[in-house]
């Protein structure tokens, strides 16, 4: 099985501050991977470094079989991937449909995609002409997921998607991600605070602690949850 994301010995940070130290991580094709950890441990920094928003001080990054180390983010984004940062992922002044059209030009494929996604989130079809900024916090998260799923990418990287979603939608989200993986073979990297949700959907996980991977492994069952919680407590 080939790797869609391979991070080898990466260090990175802002200004004089080093946030990540020698982090290595791989995600296989069709795998759902959960990156866990407390606040300020470097989870979002890792995503930003992988996508070129931050330059890695050392190490190498491969995405979908290509060496993207030091590549400009807009060039990285041309690969078959979808990335949703934690803040400012949507264009607030554009409508729901326009936000979707940014990744898929108008046409039959957009219509088909909107139909498919509205099966998961009916509000997308109902609110196509509404400005994204007027959606509630949770509805905006649904739009973010929809946009990521729309173009059927090979890799999705999402930063804290469950924040602000109502419990029943979080439940549904786990089903949706698994079904999309089944259908298209997409790989997904989730950065999450909601451990219960993350472990309910992921195949493997890693815990970042002060810029280093403190623990990693396969999600097997309740014992995984117990060990993850133990790690997050200290």
């Amino acid at each position: 099985m080939s790797h869609v994301l391979e991070i080898r010995g990466v260090s990175s940070g802002y200004g004089e501050a080093i946030i990540l130290r020698d982090v290595s991580l791989t995600i296989a094709e069709g795998e759902i991977f959960a990156l866990l950890g407390k606040n300020g441990m470097g989870k979002s920094t890792l995503l930003k470094t992988a996508l070129g928003f931050l330059r890695a001080r050392s190490g190498a990054i491969h995405l979908l079989g290509q060496d993207v180390t030091g590549r400009e983010p807009y060039k990285v984004a041309r690969l078959s991937l979808a990335y949703s940062p934690q803040e400012g992922a949507l264009f607030q002044e554009l409508t729901v449909e326009e936000n979707l059209r940014l990744v898929q030009p108008a046409g039959r494929r957009l219509q088909a995609g909107i139909e498919r996604i509205s099966e998961y989130f009916p509000i997308i079809r109902q609110r196509l002409d509404q400005k994204a900024g007027t959606l509630s916090g949770g509805e905006q998260k649904m739009l973010i997921i929809s946009r990521a799923l729309l173009v059927e990418p090979h890799l999705i990287l999402i930063d804290e998607i469950s924040e602000g979603l109502q419990p029943s939608v979080i439940d549904r989200l786990a089903d949706i991600l698994r079904r999309e993986r089944q259908r298209t073979g997409v790989s997904i990297l989730l950065v999450e605070q909601n451990v219960t949700f993350a472990l309910s959907v992921a195949d493997r996980y890693a815990i970042l602690k002060i810029g280093e991977i403190a623990a990693a492994g396969r999600v097997t069952g309740p014992e995984t949850a117990a060990s993850v919680h133990a790690h997050l407590r200290i």
Partner: peptide, 16 residues
């Protein structure tokens, strides 16, 4: 039915 989904009232934990 409209909100919580599968939350079990006794623990409040979402299902695994």
């Amino acid at each position: 039915s409209i909100y919580a989904g599968h939350v079990k009232p006794e623990t409040g934990e979402t299902r695994l």
